[in-house]
């Protein structure tokens, strides 16, 4: 495992921890899109179907368990926790799951590396992860004031994507036959979705003003 891959995993982990910390300590999920969180839970469920049959390393298995567990925990908090759920911004979080899930599933059926069930679900999870942040970005745009933790959550997620691209470039040059078009293209699309956010995030940080996305 190279440094980019490991740093990418760690920023991914940080994003989840920041979010859980916010929800757990402040007992608030203001500014967090339930739709995005539910899509992530679905992404991990579809991708880690092989968690018991395909052992890669202890690190991999533990990280998979963390991502699965935390994504369902976050969804549970927003939907079920009696205090947290009151802060959920239902009026602005109106993105329809199906608009993202259905096209991704059809695309996975059409474009995949191997048409086995697990392989199609894995491909579906890649496509869905690429666009799962959209409801969150839409919600951020509609929310006037983005609090620091929500901003950091999206920042860490974007950093994770950028580091994974560095990891693929590194692996391409250091490992023989390392070519994964589906992973790369969906990963690139996903990272580009953050570009706009990053621009405003750095600007607000540079000028030391509160993060606000233009409508």
């Amino acid at each position: 495992m190279n440094i980019f891959r490991f740093s990418g995993d760690m920023t991914h982990l940080m994003s989840v921890l920041v979010l859980l910390l916010k929800i757990h300590t402040i007992k608030s999920c203001a500014g967090i899109s339930l739709k995005t969180q539910e899509l992530y839970a679905l992404v991990f469920l579809a991708r880690y179907l092989d968690i018991v049959t395909n052992f890669i390393s202890l690190y991999n298995t533990i990280m998979k368990l963390i991502f699965l567990g935390s994504s369902f925990m976050i969804v549970w908090y927003i939907r079920r926790h009696r205090i947290v759920r009151r802060s959920y911004d239902k009026e602005h979080d109106t993105f329809r799951h199906l608009f993202l899930v259905l096209p991704c599933f059809i695309l996975a059926l059409l474009i995949n590396e191997r048409s086995a069930f697990k392989e199609i679900m894995w491909t579906f999870s890649l496509y869905l992860e690429a666009v799962a942040i959209l409801p969150q970005l839409v919600l951020l745009q509609r929310t006037k004031n983005i609090d620091n933790l929500t901003g950091q959550y999206v920042f860490f997620l974007g950093a994770y994507r950028a580091l994974y691209i560095c990891n693929w470039i590194y692996r391409y040059f250091t490992e023989p036959h390392y070519v994964h078009w589906i992973t790369w293209i969906s990963g690139l699309v996903q990272t580009l979705l953050y570009a706009d956010f990053f621009y405003y995030y750095f600007n607000s940080w540079k000028n030391n003003v509160k993060l606000q996305l233009p409508a």
């Binding site: 891959r5 991914h12 890669i56 991999n60 590396e113 990891n167 070519v179 994964h180």
Partner: peptide
């Protein structure tokens, strides 16, 4: 190439 489909990333 079977190894190609070994998804070792998260």
């Amino acid at each position: 190439d079977e190894g190609k489909l070994d998804h070792d990333e998260l």
